[in-house]
Design a protein around this nucleic acid. Structure first.
Lengths: 230, 230
DNA sequence: GTCTATAAGGAGATAGAC
DNA sequence: GTCTATCTCCTTATAGAC
């Protein structure tokens, strides 16, 4: 049980400082020198522990996304147990999907930083960054998408996929820059108001998923195409 | 009508290269040396025309956002003329709001770049960047928000503001990284399919705006607060 | 308006002592 | 594991010739 000199703390404080720096200045904009200064660590320590700047970013990601995804899976498992194979109500599904990141986002201190970082990587076109993000998110996405499909069985796949993206987009957009939202709404809306945000998201998108399909249906061909050159 | 030596072209090619570089690498990540190399211009030309790297970014913004906002205002004016003071249908309003950026987004060549850039600045927490963005977007936001309020008069202000943010979030999220969307949906969805994206957005968010209010109403106090410590 | 040359400093990464 | 010192390259920005 004897703690190793200071390794754990050194790694952790570097990760903390890196997380904040990547969120504030972006991956390119953040400098390792700035990070180690904030972390009261030595520059070479970064290379010893993480190999490179990119390795550091990957470590920053895994540390936060791992727990969030575990929560994601667990909440879905609980719903599936509860509804025993039957379709899960859209509202419950949305709540389960949004809760884990929302809990993270409203964790005092680190919450805003993590969400800001997510916003930045989501909008980073760098293929390396995109691939990193995709790997982290793929499994969660798959299982939730399946669950949504079962909950809205008559919605064509294309409609489902579009709407699924809309949910994440709206969510990330609101959470990644909470002070902007508060300022622009004159203080009426603030993402730290978990209840308000969650209930608005559920209200809007449960209605959105239930809205009539608009794509050429691939499941219930009740509405044949009216134009040939759509 | 005599064209000045090559000034116009020099400025334009620098703006083009800068736009792409800022989108690809972010404001910090993009270097002026890279930009002038792409533009086949000289490094000092940037300082002559734009004063600094930041001045260049501001010029990049104004060039694209100016026309988009003009379109925004014009489309709204046309709707207001057509409906002569009466509430504009949600679907028409959404279409008018989404069309100008969508047209820009699907302009061959520059479209993807511009949207990618928007995605990056929207998620940039730098107060300077946020202020720049806010100034550019403020007026359009105000007039459309007013129009939406008139179209959904019974929706409390808080609900309206939340949902308005959701629309922009979903829209930007989808448009700023179209290749990601295409890849992740297995090719089923692509943002360049203007008709599909627009009709999905209208379907989802017209239903979303019409969904029952969830905030404590400030207009139609039909549902008094049940909890005092909400 | 456009160029070269250069100032002045910051970047990621590594070698090697301890 | 942690440190100092350093390599090499790139950055924004400017001065001044043409």
């Amino acid at each position: 049980m004897k703690a190793s000199t200071q390794t754990q703390d050194s790694q952790t404080s570097i990760l903390d400082a890196a997380e904040r720096a990547f969120a504030d200045y972006g991956f390119d904009g953040a400098s390792l020198r700035h990070i180690v200064e904030e972390a009261k660590a030595n520059l070479a320590t970064v290379y010893y522990h993480f190999g490179s700047k990119e390795g550091l970013m990957e470590a920053v990601f895994s540390r936060r996304f791992g727990p969030i995804h575990e929560e994601h899976f667990q909440m879905l498992r609980e719903l599936e147990t509860k509804y025993k194979g039957a379709a899960i109500p859209l509202e419950k599904l949305l709540e389960a999907m949004l809760m884990p990141p929302l809990r993270m986002a409203t964790t005092p201190g680190k919450g805003e930083t993590v969400m800001c970082l997510i916003g930045r990587v989501v909008t980073d076109p760098n293929p390396q960054v995109q691939e990193l993000l995709r790997r982290q998110h793929r499994d969660v996405r798959t299982v939730y998408l399946d669950a949504f499909q079962r909950s809205v069985p008559r919605l064509p796949k294309a409609d489902l996929l579009w709407r699924f993206e809309f949910v994440w987009g709206a969510f990330v957009f609101v959470l990644c820059n909470p002070s902007r939202i508060e300022k622009i709404t004159g203080g009426v809306c603030h993402p730290s108001d978990t209840d308000a945000l969650l209930s608005q998201m559920i209200a809007v998108f449960s209605a959105g998923f239930r809205a009539p399909a608009v794509s050429k249906s691939d499941r219930s061909p009740a509405r044949p195409a009216t134009r040939r050159n759509a």
